[in-house]
Lab assay of single mutants.
Amino acid sequence: NKFNKELGWATWEIFNLPNLNGVQVKAFIDSLRDDPSQSANLLAEAKKLNDAQA
């Protein structure tokens, strides 16, 4: 379904953000699993944090 596809894509993108540490990645992935409907918002937050830590 739509959420599974978005969840998978967001998970892959978060895993590939180079400036996040393992704890941050795990926290974002756990949040995605808790509420897949928020995948776009969580991915945006992860990208912002990644950019801030560059």
Rank of each mutant, 00 (worst) to 15 (best):
N1D: 13
N1E: 12
K2A: 14
K2S: 12
K2C: 12
K2V: 13
K2H: 14
F3C: 08
F3T: 09
F3L: 12
N4F: 10
N4P: 04
K5C: 13
K5P: 13
E6A: 05
L7T: 09
L7E: 09
L7I: 15
G8D: 13
W9G: 05
W9L: 13
W9D: 09
A10I: 15
A10K: 04
A10T: 13
A10Q: 08
T11F: 15
T11A: 15
T11Q: 14
T11D: 07
W12S: 09
W12G: 07
W12V: 09
W12T: 10
E13M: 12
I14N: 02
F15Q: 15
F15N: 11
N16G: 06
L17C: 03
L17S: 01
L17N: 01
P18D: 03
P18A: 06
P18Y: 03
P18S: 08
N19V: 01
N19L: 03
N19E: 03
N19K: 01
N19I: 01
L20S: 00
L20W: 01
L20R: 00
L20I: 02
G22Y: 13
G22I: 13
G22R: 12
G22K: 15
V23R: 10
V23M: 11
V23Q: 04
V23E: 15
Q24V: 02
Q24W: 02
Q24H: 03
V25E: 01
V25F: 04
V25K: 15
V25L: 10
V25W: 03
K26L: 10
K26E: 07
K26V: 07
K26C: 07
A27G: 09
A27V: 10
F28G: 00
F28D: 00
F28S: 00
F28K: 00
I29V: 11
D30E: 12
D30R: 09
S31F: 08
S31K: 15
S31R: 15
S31T: 05
S31Q: 14
S31G: 06
L32V: 06
L32F: 04
R33Y: 14
R33L: 14
R33H: 12
D34F: 11
D34M: 13
D34I: 13
D35K: 08
D35E: 04
D35A: 05
D35V: 04
D35M: 04
Q38G: 06
Q38K: 14
S39M: 15
S39G: 03
S39W: 15
A40E: 11
N41A: 12
N41P: 06
N41M: 12
L42K: 07
L42C: 06
L42E: 00
L42V: 14
L43P: 00
L43C: 09
A44P: 01
E45I: 11
A46G: 01
K47Q: 11
K47N: 05
K47L: 10
K48H: 08
K48T: 06
K48L: 10
L49P: 01
L49V: 07
L49F: 02
N50Y: 03
N50T: 01
N50W: 02
D51A: 13
D51L: 09
A52C: 08
A52P: 01
A52E: 12
Q53F: 08
Q53H: 05
Q53A: 04
Q53N: 05
A54V: 06
A54S: 11
A54I: 07
A54T: 08
